[in-house]
C-alpha cells in the first residue's frame, strides 16, 4: 500500500491506496461521486478532473502518481449555492441534459479558459475533444463556454442560475 496526500478541492486529504489504484476509484471511494466513470479507458472524459490545474482523465491516472497534487472536481469548482460562472453558463445555455458528462465538461472548459480567456469556436472544440457527450450535440456546450468566457472577462453580467 502507498500513502498519498492530495489536496482535494482545497482540503488536505490523506489516504492509503493500492500501488496501481486509479485516481477515479480513489476519488469515488472518498465520496467524490461527481467524478463519473463512463469507460474506464481514458476515452470518454466523464472522469476528468484538474490535477495541478491540468485536465486529466482520472480513470487512467495512478493515484500514487498524483501524490502531493491539487485536485479540483466539479463540486470544488462551485456549488449550487455559489456556482462558478462556467457552471452557471452551462445551466443558462441549456448545455446540461443528462448531466453525466457535465462535471468533466465544466472542468475541461475551466482548463481552457484559464489559459485562453477568449477562445474561438475552434479552440473550444479542441479543448473539449476528450469529453464525450451523447445528449447535446455539443452546440449548447460551446455556447456555454463562449458565454462563460464573456462573463469571466467581465463583458457580461454574471448569470444567476
Amino acid at each position: 500500500m502507498v500513502n498519498v496526500t492530495l489536496t482535494l478541492n482545497g482540503e488536505k486529504t490523506a489516504c492509503t491506496v493500492l500501488p496501481d489504484e486509479k485516481l477515479l476509484d480513489t476519488l469515488r471511494r472518498l465520496g467524490r461521486t461527481d467524478v463519473k466513470k463512463g469507460c474506464g479507458e481514458g476515452t470518454c472524459g466523464s472522469c476528468s478532473v484538474l490535477l495541478n490545474g491540468r485536465l486529466v482523465a482520472s480513470c487512467i491516472v495512478f493515484t500514487a502518481a498524483a501524490d502531493g497534487g491539487e485536485i479540483l472536481t466539479a463540486a470544488g469548482l462551485g456549488t449550487a449555492d455559489n456556482p462558478h460562472p462556467i457552471q452557471s453558463s452551462f445551466v443558462k445555455a441549456g448545455a446540461v441534459q443528462c448531466g453525466f458528462c457535465t462535471p468533466g465538461m465544466v472542468l475541461a472548459a475551466k482548463a481552457l479558459l484559464d489559459v485562453v480567456p477568449e477562445p474561438d469556436v475552434q479552440q473550444i472544440k479542441l479543448a473539449l475533444d476528450g469529453n464525450l457527450c451523447r445528449c447535446t450535440g455539443y452546440v449548447k456546450i460551446i455556447d456555454a463556454v463562449q458565454s462563460a468566457a464573456r462573463t469571466l472577462a467581465g463583458k457580461d453580467e454574471v448569470p444567476h442560475a
Binding site: 456549488t79 456556482p83 441549456g94
Partner: peptide, 22 residues
C-alpha cells in the same frame, strides 16, 4: 419559455446522484 432545466445546476456542480453513486 426556456426556463433553466431544474436539475441542471445540481448536475453541473456535481450534487446530483446517479444509480451507481453513494
Amino acid at each position: 419559455h426556456s426556463v433553466d432545466k431544474l436539475d441542471a445546476l445540481a448536475l453541473a456542480t456535481g450534487g446530483e446522484k446517479f444509480a451507481g453513486d453513494d
